[in-house]
Amino acid sequence: MNFRETVTGSDLTREWKAFEARAQTLPDDHRAAWEQIKANLFPYGDFTGRNLTPILDGALGLLEESAADGQSAHEVLGDDIPGFCAALAGGEGTRTFRDRRREQLNRNVARKLSRLGG
């Protein structure tokens, strides 16, 4: 990825287009699961969503493999797609807004208590 691509995000558009092209070839229920995964991963994205590309790539790969094996999307992902996505995002070291707020809370407490001289 060169500098211009990083700044303009054009590399990102290209990658997302490639994802959509791959998703188009999936059976219907796998494609529906793909849409759900994207929606559920969205909150874990950073400003550009760049951190999500390897995660999406992995999830799409899983759907492709299961489609090829003749497994339904439900068989592979189970009932809890939000939970699946949280595990995916967590495994990649991404942080949600909630995680940032947690850290902020603990930092504020530590700072203010230390000022107290306790």
């Binding site: 707020r101 947690r102 902020q104 809370l105 504020n108 407490v109 203010k112 208590l113 107290l116």
Partner: peptide, 10 residues
């Protein structure tokens, strides 16, 4: 007091 207020904000 400090911890309560930070918790409340959170």
């Amino acid at each position: 007091r400090i911890v309560y207020k930070e918790m409340q904000t959170y």
